[in-house]
Design a protein around this nucleic acid. Sequence first.
RNA 1: UGCCCGAUGGUGUAACGGUAGCACAGCAGACUCUGAAUCUGUUUGUCAUGGUUCAAAUCCAUGUCGGGCAACCA
Length: 572
Amino acid sequence: MSTPNTDTANNAAAPAPSDFIREIVAQHVAEARYPQIHTRFPPEPNGYLHIGHAKSICLNFGIAREFGGVCNLRMDDTNPTKEDIEYVESIQADVSWLIAGWADKHLGLKAASEPFFASDYFDQIYEFAIMLIKKGKAFVCDMTPDQTDDYRRNAKESPFRNRSVEENLDLFTRMKAGEFPDGKCVLRARIDVAAPNIWLRDPLLYRIRHAEHHHTGAKWCIYPMYDFAHCLSDYLEGITHSICTLEFEVHRPLYDWILASLDLPRTLPHQYEFARLSLSYTIMSKRKLMELVTEKLVTGWDDPRLPTISGIRRRGVTPEALRAFAYHIGITKYNGVTDVAVLEHAIREDLNARAQRRLAVLRPIKVVLTNYPEGQTEQLSAINNPQDEAGGTRQIPFTRELWIEREDFAEVPPPKFFRLKPGGEVRLKYAYIIKCEEVVKDAAGNITELRCTADLDSKTGGATSARKVKGTIHWASAAHAIDAEVRLYDRLFTEAEPEKDGRDFKTVLNPHSLEVITAKCEPSLRDATPDARYQFERLAYFALDKDSAPGKPIFNRTITLKDAWAKEAQKA
RNA sequence: UGCCCGAUGGUGUAACGGUAGCACAGCAGACUCUGAAUCUGUUUGUCAUGGUUCAAAUCCAUGUCGGGCAACCA
């Protein structure tokens, strides 16, 4: 079984998530309001998806999955100047990675592996605009952006508001034909310039943009605004529940007005809003993430320190862990900051169940067992995963000269130090109990080697193997260990709220967010695979990085193990 | 300033007029050939003031605080 039973997001027996939106949907299902529940996930392809999008994906696809519905993946691509095909492709990859084996049966696509595009509806949206004009509900306005702004602020009618239908039709047609330069005029809804809600004060529907579009090419020089395109795209796709974040709450009356004004024959979609995700020690704005990427403060959109889905994936987090996280944080209308510890817990819980245990020494110090025969190699049996009885065992070579972790030895041990110290004993995992007899130093006083003796009967399974020693440490045979590059990642920011009180997030970047070292690993790690997850015992979880080459493994530290000793040591 | 939304332990969330619960974090202990995992115990909470009611976290009013919107972005 590769699916751990701790995966609440994946476990059919686990209680289904419940929140105010799902309650509404359940109510609609109970009263059979719609033939089928239909949601959508509509990212704009102007950047990479991040963990906040993951929350939305889990919500929208989760609802489709739980209520036997469909969730469309739709590119909300109405602004050609900011969007790019690179983002379309990354979004597709991230979504399919996150929902694979979970909700992929509920993914609505235009065609095989083809997502929906709002830009595919430009013809229809244009026709809807014509309809609005004919109903006297839209007009072409020639005011400048500044004027428009001023008039809307002061609830004044545009001087062009009462143009005739014929004139509006003519002007709008010529806008489409490319007769006007960018900014010359716009199409506006004719609603109520004095409405308390700004979005009802004759909002813009179309603007002129002589720009190549990544999906429609040079076909258009006018593009619909979000508010006009989004509700109509939802309608055209038969969406029933259009779920978005809180900042669109004030747009809802406009969403409803447009659909109602068109006298559309089919059932109309409705918009529901929830709070976007904020995570401590993290920034979530696409614009700011892009800043980190373009200024090379990180290595790319998939830098494992970033909260992007691709970064999280590269770091070694599984989709199950991300879904479990989304399940645990819930859905509300309250704008809070989720403790990143909740994410970390979800990751550890998932990895604990699935990771292969391995012995690797990150910061080595040499140990020589003076009473162990030179040239002898023993193969010792080690358990692959104590959480999984079917995980089996492997062999690890043991010899007279070993590497142990520098942190596992203290010449002057602090209180409650259970590890190796002069004259003290410690167990080498799966091997012998050893005793430190001598500390060898170089001229500068640095420790270069520990000379120890082994209790040769204390091997796991041996005569004195039941002897109790307080500490057990990991190790690697010096003659057999393989070198591996290990990338130790830490939080990107030193402050829980990087932008608190308007501070520039780049002033609180963690200078130690990445440390690259060479580790001494047990030889089986030579055969590490990209899909596997590893726990270097007593240290952390790791996954193979895509930069690895045959014979040159590179491991990313996904997350450390909890470390009670680090806390204890800090108290001193 | 106008309009909209929100407020439950440190953090996130549940309780749908009837015993304030869960998770994470914290603390203490047990166990341990991973100071992990697991197990046990435990600290901490309904923004304020009125009102309705036998009974209010829940309904109403006012206030306070927080967030959002006021782009030819989404």
